[in-house]
């Protein structure tokens, strides 16, 4: 175990990515993600990193694709509007099976919107965002420690499944400072057998994303779908707290789940049997977490107008027992506000 350091979320992720052997960062400044490109830029000489401030997020995402295609670790970080621009490349990298890592530091949209914390990109991150039938693994950290831990995990999952991985952070977590134990240094993978890094000592590799007739392209798509099913079967991650005896289970993700946790504790102190499920993978959505929960109410709360709640309704047995509460625009409920909402709904 390394020493604890007191670090800001974005900087902790960037440092952790560097320690995970990610030597390439291409990015475009956008609040609240800019500390990551700044961190890479600053560390570049001493760590031997390549940092380029790209002309657009469109370019940044495609540069990452280029690095990933050589089998090396590269990443970008952006926020809402920038991720929208990158979605074309997310579709592309998914089809090309490129193991890239992208951080979306969510901020409230639509459009330019605001720059504080939000979870309004849930649909965009988990349902595609770009064109075509593709999925990306989405990890939602809830603390600076988990944010940092997800840098090596994101690369490992990306390389295991040959698929882009998104780390879904937000304006709150990005700017927060907490104690964190940074990961040990690793150098990333050896030469990848599928990479386009010059066909030295092996037959040539082609990475193609352009179809050659509907039969070929359907077969290509079915291979992608089989991969997604494999990920659904094996990578659902979540945490649950006191769900067994609970009458009401709060469902919340990201750093906002800590507000929900505080509200849950207040409820328990008042004798209300409240539990919590915190999805960690937003895609694949942890449907397994809901499998054996009979005869319970679900209270989904998000910093959006109700996005993950749709996945919860698909996962539970009785969708009429799912309630939703959300705030928009960068407003975040306090624990008391959330507790009062719980009382209003369930203490009739």
């Amino acid at each position: 175990m390394g020493e604890k350091v007191f670090m800001q979320g974005n900087e902790a992720f960037a440092e952790s990515a560097i320690r995970s052997g990610c030597k390439f960062f291409f990015g475009y400044p956008i609040t609240p993600s800019s500390e990551m490109p700044e961190y890479y830029a600053k560390k570049a000489p001493e760590e031997g990193l390549t940092f380029i401030q790209a002309e657009t997020e469109v370019a940044a995402f495609n540069m990452i694709a280029g690095v990933a295609a050589t089998g090396k670790r590269g990443m970008t970080a952006t926020s809402g509007p920038g991720f929208s621009l990158g979605c074309e490349a997310m579709s592309y990298m998914s089809a090309a099976s490129l193991p890239s890592v992208v951080v979306d530091v969510m901020r409230p949209g639509p459009a330019d919107g605001e720059i504080l914390g939000s979870q309004g990109d849930y649909f965009q991150l988990t349902k595609g965002g770009g064109h075509g039938d593709y999925r990306t693994i989405v990890l939602a950290p809830y603390s600076v420690q988990e944010y940092a831990d997800f840098a090596p995990l994101a690369f490992e999952l990306a390389e295991k499944y040959l698929n882009p991985v998104v780390v879904a952070s937000d304006g709150t977590l990005a700017k927060m400072m907490e104690n964190v134990v940074l990961p040990e240094r690793t150098s990333g993978p050896e030469r990848q057998p599928w990479a386009v890094d010059g066909a030295k000592g092996r037959p040539h590799n082609d990475i193609t994303t352009c179809g050659d007739g509907p039969e070929q392209w359907e077969a290509f798509n079915l291979r992608l779908q089989a991969k997604y099913q494999n990920i659904r079967d094996n990578e659902q991650r979540w945490e649950e707290y006191q769900t067994e005896d609970a009458d009401v289970i709060i469902v919340a993700f990201g750093v906002y789940s800590r507000v929900a946790m505080a509200a849950m504790k207040m409820a328990r102190e008042k004798g209300l049997k409240v539990g919590l499920i915190r999805p960690i993978t937003l895609w694949p959505f942890p449907v397994k977490a809901f499998e054996n929960l009979e005869n319970k109410d679900f209270f989904v709360t998000e910093l959006n107008s109700g996005q993950m709640v749709e996945d919860v309704k698909l996962a539970v047995k009785d969708k009429d027992r799912v309630e939703f509460y959300g705030r928009l625009g960068g407003m975040i409920p306090t624990p008391v506000e959330l507790f009062n909402k719980l009382c209003e709904l369930y203490m009739k």
Partner: peptide, 20 residues
């Protein structure tokens, strides 16, 4: 304050106000 408290093994979270 966070640095001093974390030396005592406590959890600390500092959230700066920014934006608006």
């Amino acid at each position: 304050v966070c640095t001093a408290a974390s030396k005592k093994g406590l959890n600390v979270t500092l959230s700066p106000a920014y934006g608006q």
